[in-house]
């Protein structure tokens, strides 16, 4: 419950405060958000599978974000930042779809 509240409060605060992202972080934020979304979907599926674990979630969340940021950073340094960003988004999107399918099977048996 408190986790859902945290998500809602974060969205509301982000909309209300309208913070400015530092220019250095601008390429990473969207990727980080997608990576975190993947972690959240994975956690939801694990919850339904009955294998949810706080520690695993925290580590996968932070790990996802850091690895995604690292990949984009490397891509930028190598001059293929745009392509790698697209790749990261594609991979996470596929995982999110897969997790969403598993969640759907759990909740609707369909």
């Amino acid at each position: 419950m408190i986790a859902v509240l945290g998500l809602v409060v974060g969205i509301v605060l982000g909309l209300v405060l309208q913070p400015t992202i530092p220019a250095a972080l601008q390429p990473y934020l969207p990727i980080a958000v997608v990576a975190a979304l993947d972690a959240v979907f994975g956690a939801s599926r694990a919850l339904l599978d009955g294998i949810f674990n706080d520690r695993v979630f925290v580590i996968s969340f932070i790990g996802n974000v850091l690895v995604a940021a690292l990949v984009v950073f490397l891509g930028d340094q190598l001059g293929v930042g745009a392509q790698l960003s697209t790749g990261v988004v594609v991979v996470f999107s596929i995982r999110i779809f897969a997790n969403a399918a598993a969640i759907r099977r759990h909740l609707f048996h369909a």
Binding site: A3, V9, I11, L13, P19, A32, V33, V58
Partner: peptide, 15 residues
């Protein structure tokens, strides 16, 4: 978990 999700929501809304 709530703290992490708060960060996610914040980042999402900001982006």
């Amino acid at each position: 978990v709530a703290l992490l999700l708060f960060g996610l929501g914040f980042g999402l809304a900001t982006q």
